[in-house]
């Protein structure tokens, strides 16, 4: 079902946790709210779930205004950060809980619990207690419990935070598949930008209680709307320069031919767009620099380079068995980038 959040304001004493948030989710959409801790994303989730009442603004599910509706009547499935499984109930009893509360007939409960557990591939463990399960299994029980009653909306509050990397990656894809299959409108909260890029239809980047940008992952990554978004999402070189006419003068690189209103300008250059040595030849903007640090990462290497007469930049070069090893520390390199790989970060 559609979710529409309009002008949500939430204050705790003197601090403003949410300063007017607008957000619309289409039916079946998977939207991630990405932000550092303390940016207000959990508060927004609690407002949508009904655990916190907003000081201003409305929350709508489909056509219904649910701002004043209690959590128990919202029909919203939620997976908590620590899963919040009932420790004294078995897996099956945990999953049956929302159906029991809705007074569904027993045979229907049994059938739907079985289906939900099959969906997360935990049918064999239905008699276990939560503490007898691994973290990943607990997470899947929480997910089954949140979807078993056919909620209008699914909320996920950093559900992978406590899991190790490998397990997390597997579960991310699993959750995404499940969500698509059920066609559930989903609001997902994370501070992990990689997770946001992998999972989302759209990403909303949150900063100090406001949404800086809402857009498709590729869009937000390539054309961040604010300096904060550029910095928070992925690795970035933020080049400061002076815009004059049809170019921005960046110390060390010279004029970069991009359209920009005159005045001080910030250019975003992703580390992978920066080319080194032979590959830098013939590009629009070139400079020389000295390697400060080389970090080997397997598939690629990361180099910190001090540009002659300019800033320190980060370059990421792909590594193949046939390529020569990346320049070591202290080496002098030629570097360059194409003007079309540069994004002008709007002044905020």
């Amino acid at each position: 079902m559609r979710l529409s959040v309009q002008g949500i304001v939430k204050r705790f004493g003197a601090t403003t946790a949410l300063g007017g948030v607008d957000l619309d989710l289409a039916e079946g959409e998977f939207l991630t709210i990405l932000g550092p801790s303390g940016s207000g994303k959990t508060t927004l989730l609690k407002v949508v779930a009904g655990f916190e009442a907003p000081d201003a603004g409305r929350v709508r599910l489909g056509e219904e205004d649910v701002t004043e509706v209690s959590p128990r009547q919202r029909d919203v499935g939620m997976v908590f950060q620590n899963y919040a499984l009932f420790p004294h109930l078995t897996v099956a009893q945990n999953v049956a809980f929302p159906l029991e509360m809705r007074r569904r007939p027993k045979p229907e409960i049994a059938k739907r619990v079985t289906e939900a557990l099959a969906l997360v591939e935990l049918g064999a463990l239905s008699g276990r207690l939560p503490r007898q399960l691994s973290g990943g299994q607990q997470q899947r029980v929480a997910l089954a419990r949140a979807v078993v009653f056919g909620p209008r909306l699914l909320l996920l509050d950093e559900p992978f935070g406590a899991l190790d990397r490998k397990l997390r990656e597997g579960l991310q894809l699993e959750v995404r598949r499940l969500q698509r299959r059920l066609g559930l409108t989903t609001l997902f909260i994370t501070h992990d930008q990689e997770e946001a890029l992998v999972m989302s239809d759209r990403i909303a980047v949150m900063n100090h209680g406001r949404l800086d940008q809402v857009g498709a992952p590729a869009e937000v990554y390539a054309r961040p709307a604010t300096r904060f978004v550029a910095d928070f999402l992925g690795e970035s070189n933020l080049l400061e320069g002076e815009a004059r006419g049809d170019a921005v003068a960046v110390p060390g690189f010279g004029p970069v031919p991009v359209a920009c209103p005159p005045g001080p300008a910030t250019l975003l250059l992703r580390p992978e767009a920066l080319r080194l040595d032979a590959k830098a030849a013939g590009l629009d903007c070139r400079a020389t620099g000295r390697v400060v640090e080389t970090i080997f990462l397997g598939l690629s290497a990361k180099l910190r380079i001090r540009v002659e007469g300019g800033p320190e930049v980060l370059a990421r070069v792909p590594l193949r068995p046939s390529t020569p090893p990346p320049a070591g520390e202290g080496a002098t390199v030629a570097l360059g980038f194409a003007a079309e790989d540069v994004h002008v970060v709007p002044r905020g």
Binding site: A49, G50, F51, S70, P71, R72, Q73, R74, D75, V76, G77, M78, F80, N82, A84, F86, P87, H88, F97, P98, M101, R102, R145, A146, F149
Partner: peptide
Amino acid sequence: VDPDLGRAAEGLGAPAWRAFTRITLPL
């Protein structure tokens, strides 16, 4: 007893007294 359990019960549709008798009291 983790306060999130009460919140979870409520979010899953439990009226206050049923959340109490099913979750808080047994725990």
